[in-house]
């Protein structure tokens, strides 16, 4: 019989983030498939007590809390100690956590402390005859596998954007858990946005705009038009509210013709970049085969604008490919959006 602990961090305002609420749904659904499973929540943070309310109605027996000022911000030493205490207090055999930067930072180490096993970035959970399995991607989203383990506690982090977020209803009983929080040599100073100007990465945007290396290449007139490309792309991001991704080649670009000044490695999707989740994706001036296109593996509706009808970014991967000059198209798109 499994005891499932949902491990989440309270936000600074005492709420729970969307990935945590999604993980709550996953935990509830898994518990429903396992006969006799016990479902608990473990919350840590400076305002952990207030956060429990957001989990009400999801079938949790109770919420275990580690609440302390030093948990206001993510920091390995204190977060790991809090998580360890919650797992120990729960007696959990399965520990589920959202794969946020905060939980990902500590989960594997805590699994080692608890002499458990860990798998991360699960995109689905299931159970057959009482045996739990998880689905996750391997080799940068190039292949998908189903994993299971005998060892307990088994720690699993869940990819954000996969499950529907839980909507709270009713109350949830909570219980503080003592956790000796260690001294740390790390002092968290705060958050910093890239200094390169506008914030272009918007995980919650419905649309991902992917810029490819073609934007910086020589056009039909034999010249590169990088500043025009910058103007068009930033103009579009401003009007559409889209998040900006870049192919590896455009992010890496330098030298001849210059590169898009506002793109950093944080924007990179695919290969060694991110694989963000958005409802729609518009790829422009991208070209590449399978390894490159994993960047929009988790984008639902996909369209592309490219001069090559056989573009690997699009053929068999996009819903629609417009064989057209992206400079002209995006200029007109911006006009239409402005109008």
């Amino acid at each position: 019989m499994e005891t499932i602990l949902l491990l989440v961090a309270a936000e600074e305002d005492g709420g729970l983030g969307k990935p945590a609420l999604e993980a709550a749904t996953a935990a509830r659904e898994l518990a429903a498939r396992l006969e006799g499973a016990k479902l608990l929540a473990g919350i840590f943070g400076a305002q952990a007590g207030r956060a429990g309310a957001a989990l009400a109605g999801a079938g949790f027996g109770e919420a275990l809390l580690v609440e302390h000022e030093s948990l206001a911000r993510a920091r390995f030493a204190t977060d790991a100690a809090a998580c360890q205490a919650l797992v120990a207090a729960s007696g959990a055999s399965l520990v589920l956590a959202p794969a946020t930067s905060r939980l990902q930072r500590v989960l594997a180490a805590v699994s080692a402390r608890c002499r458990g096993a860990v798998d991360t970035h699960a995109t689905a959970l299931g159970a057959e005859s009482g045996a739990v399995h998880a689905t996750r991607w391997f080799y940068r989203q190039r292949m998908v596998g189903r994993v299971s383990r005998e060892r307990r506690p088994w720690f699993l982090s869940l990819e954000p954007g996969v499950f529907a977020p839980h909507a709270a209803s009713g109350d949830l009983v909570s219980r503080p858990v003592p956790a000796p929080l260690p001294e740390s040599r790390t002092r968290v100073e705060g958050l910093r946005s890239p200094s390169s100007g506008a914030q272009t990465i918007r995980p919650d945007a419905p649309l991902l705009f992917v810029a490819g290396a073609g934007w910086c290449k020589k056009q039909a007139d034999g010249l590169a038009h990088v500043s025009e490309a910058e103007r068009l792309i930033l103009g579009f991001l401003g009007k559409s509210g889209a998040s900006l991704g870049g192919s590896k080649s455009v992010v890496d670009q330098k030298g001849e013709g210059g590169a898009l000044s506002f793109l950093t490695h944080l924007n990179q999707v695919g290969q060694t970049g991110s694989t963000p989740r958005h409802a729609k994706g518009l790829a422009t001036c991208c070209h590449g085969e399978e390894p490159h296109t994993v960047g929009w593996r988790f984008v639902s509706g996909r369209r592309a604008v490219n001069l090559d009808a056989n573009c690997g970014w699009a053929q068999g991967k996009a819903d629609v490919l417009y064989v057209a000059d992206a400079f002209k198209v995006m200029a007109r798109v911006n006009e239409l959006l402005a109008g």
Binding site: D119, V144, G145, R146, V147, S148, R149, A314, L321
Partner: peptide, 19 residues
């Protein structure tokens, strides 16, 4: 102790409308 019951390439071909 990691058991992999299946590993496969995603079926990902979409019916691309080329305009």
């Amino acid at each position: 102790g990691l058991a992999l019951s299946s590993v496969e390439l995603p079926s990902q071909r979409r019916d691309t409308r080329v305009v």
